[in-house]
Amino acid sequence: MSSLQRMIMCPVCGGSVIIEHSDQVNLCTYCASPILGPNQNRNCTNHPDTLATEVCHVCKDLICDDCTEKRVGDYGGKLLTIVNCSKESCIAASDWARPLNVEYQRLANMDWADKSDNFILRITGVGAVVMMIFELYFIIGMLNLQYFTPFGSLLPTGGLFPGILVIILMVIGNILAAVLLQTSLQVYVHERQLTSGAFLIVALILEAAYLIWRGLYFNLVQVPDPLFLTILLAAFLFGTMLVFIGSLGAIYIGNKKRIQMNRAMDQLNLSTKSALKEL
């Protein structure tokens, strides 16, 4: 079977590509990725000596960087980047999408923070997961103490059925740990990093205070099995330390990003101050 008779596969998704134009871009029948025609020149349509880098989303011509206009189009509420060439008809057809502000893109670039953000995410994330596992273990351990050991009779009931108070207080602790976990993952998102870091510190203080209060209230120092308290304390200290370090990092990096954005705003005259000056 000759290669010409074979099905041409899309190099992106593996869907079939039907060649309708030999000297123009054809689209994959599945994912609509543009695929070169068999006789198509790979250079820019307007600059025959320059290798093309983009394809116009309107006319499907190959274009180089000089002929490219990038826009941000709102597709059903989702902002996606589209490219058009400098032909008037293509500009008119892409007019519904807003031009991408290249200068803003440069000033707002935060690739410099990738490494530190990765580190912060892992530190806070692992810490919060340890805290969560610790809380999940704590509730099971407390229920075990309440119902399956003689120590259960010594635990306070608060006038309720034995164990109910333990469950209520432990579930509140679990919710607090879940909030901590959810927030710890948000430190990776640029715009939430600073507030997440600050919120984590507050949540951590609350969690620690609540934990110490629970330990004292249930008089866990008197628990016959010393391993229970040791494991709890070790896990809690380890988790707290990680979350605390991660939160400080998130606040520090987040603040640097805030300063960068403020500078970008001033340079582009987009800040609130400059807008008020125009008033």
Binding site: I8, P11, G37, N39, R42, L51
Partner: peptide
């Protein structure tokens, strides 16, 4: 060849994406 490529391993014919980047 002709903006197509035969995979060295499984033999399928692949189209070439829009640009050489």
């Amino acid at each position: 060849q002709d903006n197509r490529l035969q995979c060295d391993y499984c033999g399928v014919t692949l189209g070439i994406s829009n640009v050489f980047v």
